[in-house]
Design a protein around this nucleic acid. Sequence first.
DNA 1: TTGATAGGCAAGTGAACACTTGCCTATCCT
DNA 2: AGGATAGGCAAGTGTTCACTTGCCTATCAA
Lengths: 100, 100
Amino acid sequence: MADDLFKALADPTRRTILDELAEKSGQTLFEICSRLSMKHQLGISRQAVSQHLAVLEAAGLVETRREGRYKFHDLNTAPLRHITERWLERGAPGPEESTP
Amino acid sequence: MADDLFKALADPTRRTILDELAEKSGQTLFEICSRLSMKHQLGISRQAVSQHLAVLEAAGLVETRREGRYKFHDLNTAPLRHITERWLERGAPGPEESTP
DNA sequence: TTGATAGGCAAGTGAACACTTGCCTATCCT
DNA sequence: AGGATAGGCAAGTGTTCACTTGCCTATCAA
């Protein structure tokens, strides 16, 4: 749960993808690829970006919708809103993992 | 900068250490070790915890002070406060990496 | 139908990471 | 002094992770 979220945020390329989706919502895979290449000089393959998007989607940060042969990606910032309160708020921290 | 912070938060054991330091500030290495073992059933070596603390310190999340043979660890939540605003605030995302 | 476009699946590779083991230094107490 | 306590350094190991390569499916336009 929180694990997927923090792991998704751990990679700089994924954070840049979130930046791009925050700037323009509803981008396709190819659109994101071009932007990473053009604006950020990231020489990265389409499959790599696709895998990053899968990680972001598993974390709930990206939602997708299919229309014909296009798949649009939208940013969902909801999971981000309260992830730090765990340490910012004084009180019970609340354990995360029970069985390692 | 932000890279160290997100990488530090990516590990569940490190997040648990932050939980413990949020609950009780100024703990020593051995104190943190016992708590991880007792409260969280984490069978982890002292050196592993020490390495985690080094990562957290590099991220600015933990600050240390030496007193004699004791080294006390304090939580610093300052780096956590604005890490999500980058995507929550509408506006310029601001690039992170310029030269990979 | 043919070709082009948009995307998916899966195996393989190299590097980063979490963790251990073994030994060493420093401080305190008796 | 000598043992005990608190911590540090460094090499080694196994796993995870980011990324590539190669091939395959689906939709649309001519």
